[in-house]
Design a protein around this nucleic acid. Structure first.
Length: 116
DNA sequence: ATTCTGACAGCAA
DNA sequence: TTTGCTGCCAGAA
């Protein structure tokens, strides 16, 4: 019987929270980057799903620092007000125009590189 | 158990 | 360049 190397799915969510929580101030990353770090590069959607549930997490998750690969604030609508996410990022030095981070490439933080 | 949806990403046209 | 379809994982009904 093949040993299931895969971690528990519960851990998947926990890892997403953990990685997201470790995003430094003034930095952002993408769903795909987190997914890749967790080993499921093609399932970036699941990462977004985990972040969706982040509000139920007792700890604060800087989900506003996670955007899609284009640097667009796709999930801004999930922060209560549509402008909350943008203002949080702008407060951290991000330059946002039309819900898009202009200096995304400059502020990009890759967990698969920064984390062991 | 089956079906649909979702804060995405990649590729084809 | 934009638009549309497909693949992927997990959860809700």
């Amino acid at each position: 019987m093949p040993a299931r190397i895969k971690s528990d799915k519960k851990d998947f969510f926990s890892q997403v929270y953990e990685v997201t929580r470790q995003i430094p101030y003034g930095r952002v990353t993408s769903y795909g980057a987190i997914a890749k770090y967790l080993g499921t590069a093609m399932s970036a959607r699941t990462v977004g799903w985990a972040l969706n549930m982040s509000h139920a997490n007792p700890e604060f998750i800087p989900a506003h620092r996670v955007v899609n690969r284009n640097g667009i604030l796709t999930g801004k609508h999930h922060f209560g007000n549509s402008t909350t996410m943008q203002q949080l990022l702008e407060n951290e030095g991000m330059i946002i125009e039309d819900d898009k981070i202009l200096n995304f490439r400059e502020k990009f933080w890759d967990p698969s590189v920064e984390l062991p």
